[in-house]
Amino acid sequence: MATTHHEHHDDHGHDHAHHVIPISLLMKVFGGLIIGMALTVYAAIFGPKMPVQFMWLIAMLIAYAKAFLVVQYFMGVKYTTKLVKAFAYGGFFWATLLLIMLTDYGTRQWEPVPGWTPGEESALSRDLEIDRVPEDVQIHH
């Protein structure tokens, strides 16, 4: 962000924006994308059965890899200025801020809503309360 006077002018001088990506590289990237797509389908439909969180993880990792290929080569971010790189990846990063909302949904049951046994001291100690169910009570997991 703190581009100085000189860098600013270097920006003008550079020819990076004119970088021509060779067709062979484009084809390799396209091949990579097709392989990625085939992998996703294989993992989801034909692949070995795995725990569901793991399946989601794999699907999302492949999707991110494909997205990275597209951004880096098809969109040519690899060959642009740092500034454009910051914008390109900063946007993705910022979108993940929405995930903060999951904290709410993940910890809402810590709230002393009716049905919870009264907590000892703090509203946040209720998890312990559940752990204190007598051991002879059989809980099936």
């Binding site: 910022w94 709410d104 810590w110 709230e111 509203a123 946040l124």
Partner: peptide, 21 residues
């Protein structure tokens, strides 16, 4: 400014933990 929106929702039944953060 993007990290403080929950202070409009302290009593909206969002989780206590998130409210405090």
């Amino acid at each position: 400014s993007f990290l403080v929106w929950g202070h409009h929702m302290f009593v909206s039944s969002q989780s206590v933990l998130q409210g405090i953060v």
